[in-house]
Lab assay of single mutants.
Amino acid sequence: ERVRARYDYEAQNEDELSFKKGDIITVLEKDDGWWKGRNGKEGLFPSNYVEELE
């Protein structure tokens, strides 16, 4: 599954994923509120910062 970033997100910890608004992220795992994904790097990000691609 792929999602698009709705906002910029700056990683707060080294296991998190940074991205810019409009970036496409491949979702690897979904957990409550935090998803694991890849966009060149791999890490956790808040699920409310992304939207599913149509």
Rank of each mutant, 00 (worst) to 15 (best):
E1K: 13
E1D: 12
E1M: 15
E1W: 15
R2A: 09
R2L: 14
R2P: 05
V3W: 15
V3P: 02
V3L: 06
R4A: 06
R4L: 09
R4F: 05
R4Y: 05
A5W: 00
R6P: 04
R6D: 02
R6W: 05
R6E: 04
Y7S: 08
Y7V: 09
Y7N: 07
D8V: 02
D8G: 07
D8I: 02
D8Q: 05
E10W: 11
E10Y: 13
E10D: 13
E10A: 11
A11C: 05
A11N: 03
A11W: 03
Q12H: 09
Q12W: 05
Q12I: 08
Q12F: 07
Q12N: 10
N13Q: 08
E14D: 13
E14G: 11
D15A: 13
D15T: 13
D15S: 13
D15C: 14
E16A: 03
E16T: 04
L17H: 01
L17N: 02
S18P: 04
S18K: 01
S18F: 03
S18G: 06
S18N: 07
S18D: 06
F19D: 00
K20W: 07
K20F: 09
K21D: 03
K21W: 05
K21F: 05
K21R: 11
K21S: 09
K21Q: 10
G22Y: 05
G22V: 03
G22D: 06
G22A: 03
D23Q: 08
D23T: 07
D23K: 03
D23P: 02
D23S: 07
D23F: 05
I24S: 03
I24E: 05
I25Y: 01
I25D: 00
T26M: 11
T26R: 06
T26F: 11
V27Y: 01
V27K: 02
V27C: 04
V27S: 01
V27F: 02
L28A: 04
L28C: 07
L28P: 00
L28V: 10
E29S: 15
E29L: 11
K30T: 06
K30I: 06
K30R: 12
D31V: 15
D31L: 15
D31Y: 15
D32M: 09
D32W: 07
D32L: 10
G33K: 14
G33F: 15
W34D: 00
W34N: 04
W34I: 07
W34C: 11
W34V: 06
W34S: 05
W35A: 01
W35C: 04
W35D: 00
W35V: 03
K36D: 00
K36H: 07
K36M: 11
G37H: 01
G37R: 02
R38A: 09
R38P: 00
R38Q: 09
R38V: 08
R38F: 15
N39S: 11
N39G: 09
K41Y: 09
K41R: 14
K41Q: 11
E42G: 05
E42L: 10
G43L: 00
G43F: 00
G43V: 02
G43Q: 01
G43P: 02
L44H: 11
L44N: 08
L44F: 15
F45E: 03
F45S: 01
F45H: 00
P46A: 05
S47H: 09
S47V: 10
S47Y: 10
N48G: 12
N48R: 12
N48A: 14
Y49S: 08
Y49F: 12
Y49Q: 06
Y49M: 12
V50Y: 01
V50E: 02
V50L: 03
V50K: 02
E51K: 04
E51A: 06
E51H: 07
E51Y: 07
E52M: 13
E52N: 12
E52R: 13
E52F: 12
E52A: 15
E52L: 13
L53K: 05
L53I: 14
E54I: 13
E54L: 12
E54W: 13
